[in-house]
């Protein structure tokens, strides 16, 4: 793998991340976050919204970096550390999907389940490869 193909891969990861950010807004509607949280105490609702927004901001910032400045992720020790972190971040997300999320819900939405697992695995592989790239 050369630097050019790695850069193209990172830009592809950026596109996937943009899609994930957009998908989160649809997920909020699909899984009726508001109705499901309506009975919860205000603090619980607020913490959920805050965590959700912060995770989205991480994905959006990473997308921006991948699409606009992929070379920053490929250069130097820090780029490797950042990519290593996101390799773990997305790798663990595959594990969360497989081991933690409700099996019945996943079975009922198998197509989406496979799509998201594939996206998370691809992102993990892409960032891990960038971290290891000489």
């Amino acid at each position: 793998m050369n630097a050019l193909s790695l850069e193209i891969g990172l830009r592809g990861a950026g596109v996937m991340l943009v899609c994930l950010v957009v998908a989160n807004f649809f997920a909020a509607k699909r899984w009726r976050y508001e109705e499901n949280l309506a009975g919860a105490e205000p603090m619980v609702r607020q913490i959920f919204h805050v965590h959700c927004a912060y995770i989205l901001s991480i994905m959006a910032a990473l997308a921006l970096l991948c699409l606009g400045w992929p070379q920053l992720l490929m250069d130097g020790r820090m780029g490797r550390v950042l990519c290593g972190f996101f390799g773990l971040f997305w790798g663990s997300r595959v594990w969360v999907q497989l081991a933690y999320y409700d099996r019945q819900t996943r079975r009922e939405n198998r197509g989406w389940d496979i799509l998201f697992i594939s996206v998370f695995a691809t992102l993990s592989a892409m960032f891990t490869l960038t971290a290891l790239f000489p």
Partner: peptide, 15 residues
């Protein structure tokens, strides 16, 4: 909360 919302909660928190 429903199981999915609880799972999302913990997932977001851990990340």
């Amino acid at each position: 909360l429903t199981p999915l919302m609880r799972e999302l909660w913990w997932t977001y928190s851990i990340y």
